[in-house]
């Protein structure tokens, strides 16, 4: 397995309101991840802060607007902007989602699901080739949190991701919370999903909180809300994954109701303990 370019440590999603606390405290986390789209302005505090963080920390740039899962062509202007951000900050990792968000030129600002068929497989593969050629680097593709299914799907999501990674050479970003959320939403066992997942291609893991509701029929419906600490069953699933693949760069995402920095950092410290335990297990 090719080692991850990110350190095999726990990181945290960077929030500007934490900047002062972070630079006041040396080396609290392994790396930071930022959303690419927040750094597409010309200048100002976002770039000043990210430039400062970059001096001391590893960096993962995570796109949320490229719409790789669209059947329509990629937005070339946006791809160019992504290249500008990646060229400027030289992140150890760049990732995007198996989802779409732009249709007929309108940006819908959500990660929307797609059917898994030979046709979508071909199109997503083409898009990832285009991204990797334009950026001149490997990208990681993240598994989505989904709330519904498509009648026309002919492939399992895990097989779809495995084939994409094989065709394009991209790595995978395994979002363990998304696995748990989607499995419960589709009445499946999250451990079965992990068992079928092409773990050898995983270069980064995401962890986050979710919220709970019910669907029309009263069945559990989990929402990928990124607004709470990581839930216990997600931690347990994460331990299972680490047991299978060993230490891997792992990120805590917290995007809504963002807590004070010590709380978010505490989540990263908790992930770091599990990474360290997995490393000891490997060494033993």
């Amino acid at each position: 397995m090719i080692p991850s370019a990110l350190s095999q440590r726990a990181g945290a999603g960077f929030k500007p309101e934490h900047f002062a606390a972070i630079i006041a405290e040396p080396q609290p986390v392994g790396f930071f991840e930022v959303h690419a789209e927040n750094y597409m302005g010309a200048g100002g505090p976002p770039h000043a802060q990210l430039g400062k963080l970059r001096e001391d920390y590893g960096l993962s740039i995570h796109g949320v607007g490229l719409s790789i899962g669209s059947m329509q062509p990629l937005d070339r202007d946006h791809l160019t902007r992504l290249k500008t951000v990646c060229d400027r900050y030289q992140p150890e990792s760049f990732s995007e989602h198996l989802a779409w968000s732009t249709h007929d030129g309108v940006f819908l600002s959500d990660l929307l699901p797609l059917p898994y068929t030979q046709e979508t497989l071909f199109r997503v593969g083409e898009h990832i080739d285009e991204v990797q050629e334009t950026l001149g680097r490997q990208m990681l593709l993240e598994n989505p949190a989904t709330y519904l299914l498509f009648a026309e799907s002919t492939l399992e999501e895990t097989d779809f991701l495995a084939e994409i990674a094989r065709r394009t050479g991209c790595g995978l970003l395994l979002d363990v919370n998304n696995v748990f959320v989607a499995a419960i939403n589709h009445n499946l066992d999250p451990r079965d999903y992990i068992a079928r997942f092409p773990l050898e291609a995983v270069r980064e893991i995401h962890l986050s909180g979710h919220s709970e509701t019910v669907d029309d029929l009263g069945a559990p419906l989990l929402i990928d809300s990124h607004d709470t600490p990581v839930k216990d069953p997600v931690w347990a699933l994460y331990e299972t994954v680490l047991g299978r693949i060993g230490p891997v760069a792992s990120l805590i995402e917290w995007d809504n109701d963002v807590p004070a920095w010590p709380l978010l950092r505490g989540e990263a410290v908790a992930a770091q303990r599990l990474i360290d335990a997995a490393a000891r297990q490997r060494a033993a």
Partner: peptide
Amino acid sequence: AGVMAWNSPSPHRRYSVYRNNVSASL
């Protein structure tokens, strides 16, 4: 048409999550 859930052929509430995400995020 063609959107479904394991327990429903027409999952209104599940589809509404996406619509709500679009609305809320914008």
